[in-house]
Design a protein around this nucleic acid. Sequence first.
RNA 1: GGGCCGGUAGCUCAGUCGGUAGAGCUGCGGACUUUUAAUCCGUAGGUCCCGGGUUCGAGUCCCGGCCGGCCCA
Length: 565
Amino acid sequence: MPDERQTLSAEDAIIDARRAKAEVMRARGENPFANDTVPRLGGHTGDIAQVRATAADAQDAAGRYDESRVRALVGDEVFHVRGRVIALRSTGGLSFIRLRDRTGEIQLLVSEAALGADYARLAEFDVGDVLEAEGELTASKRGELSITPRRVRLLTKALRPLPEKWHGLTDVEIRYRQRYVDLIANPPVADVFRARSHVVRATRAILDEQGFLEVETPTMHTLIGGAAAKPFLTHHNALDMDLLMRIAPELYLKRLVVGGLERVYEIGRCYRNEGISTRHNPEFTILEFYQAYATYDDLIAFMESMLQGIDHRLAQAMPAAHATWAAARPFSLDHPFAQVSMDRAVVAAAERTAIPEWLSAVGDGGGDALVTVLKGSLGERIKEWAKSSPRAKGLDWSNFRKAFGKCDSDGERLFACYEYLAEPFLVDDYRTPDGKHSVPVFIKDYPIEVSPLARRNDARPELADRFEIFLQGRELGNGFSELNDPDDQAGRFRAQVERKARGDEEAMDYDADYIRALEHGMPPAAGFGMGIDRLVMALTNATSIRDVILFPLLRPEASPGKSTP
RNA sequence: GGGCCGGUAGCUCAGUCGGUAGAGCUGCGGACUUUUAAUCCGUAGGUCCCGGGUUCGAGUCCCGGCCGGCCCA
């Protein structure tokens, strides 16, 4: 039967043609999906970067190589490399193949003279194929370091074509759904994920050096706690039991502090059943660590040095890529980080709005006095207040009013003031001395009502010994001295349960076992949690969390792939 | 959840007022022993996201849906 398909799409035609090439190879007794890749001419197998390093001294100031210098340096040494074809050009009896492995790229300068009859096999190679090649090093006339293979062999036939060479792949949907193509077509993408690995490695190294123990705690929970978020629900069949995917590891890690492990950390996945945005993926990676006998002030100092340390280690691991990222950063990690209490941040923000009544209120009584003024007249005065200054005009008054109105306590009201009056302007208000970069800001001393797991301040019981760190205006992490009074904690859980009963889907459950653990005595401790994804975003200038997650959650596509054998 | 924008060849994109579906790259055939987005000659390739409507006629206008992006919540 002839092929009944009336029309063949361009893609199908390409796939068919490449399959046919694989069949030709099979007919010759060769395997188009081979894995017996070994040197046959006495060459030594190496990464492309190793091969390049061998000839590094034959390079001139402009980075060009000269054939005689290459020869003088490496002689007749034979090299064996493997990699993917990313460019393929022929000028007739001479062909140029650009090969890439995980360490770099090198050109194969393939001549009919060196390969003889096998030269015709080049017609079976396509961009995207994986090859092995074995031969001596040389330089092309244009000064490019090259291998002149006496043997070149296809290892893996790529049936599908790669995106075109000029523009590459830019369609973000294909980039996220087919990350394997994105990684091949867009080398900077691979750098971001290398950076992510280095960031995690540096984080581990810094904590390990301080005597922290890495642990793994359950990701399937029976109660929700440790953060304010909606959980995912799942089910265990054998136990016929609903389970919740964790929103935070916090309460398990603190149980370990009770158990005497004293310094523990976990880097792991958490799940929050919330909207998807450029800053939110339903699953994300969190770092949490807990240190006995430390206070939140100790952790503020530690986090400053830790973030600088992570960035320095990233710079050492990937100097070129890091230089590019660092040059484009709107923030600086190399200047002292700012520290300000939430109350002072609200006062400073109120002063900058230049609203006369706010000025006189915060002048006398700080943030509390501002809250009192707002309780009296926020609703009626917005129109007038908004005219006071450009900054006042730029405030999100309607949402501020809504959030403020929902608050049950002055502590929550102060927090609302912070969120709407101060937080949007952190990037403007806290900058390096030359004004060119924002600096990270620690906001300290949160109202107790919004901090259900943090220790109450000894001098001011309405406050918690808690901080959050903001990098370029975005929340990066959250830390506090831990609440270790079991009775206080039980009361805070009860308040959470009440909120849940009133419809707060993000409130925590009462965790009786955690209270029992605290009743055994948790040493004074402080802990910190940070989103790894957001840190990697900041360090690599990514604008979307999807750019630092290899396979971000997307709706399923209608029909993946169309090719059939 | 709301607003705005987008979906046309494998990829990157044009497509005017509603009137035969276009380009470049890629692919395929050919030439070429120093290319770098090679060049030159020839050539193929389409569910215009899906469904409905208006119309003599829809990639284009209208309605609904799907998928994605950005902003807001």
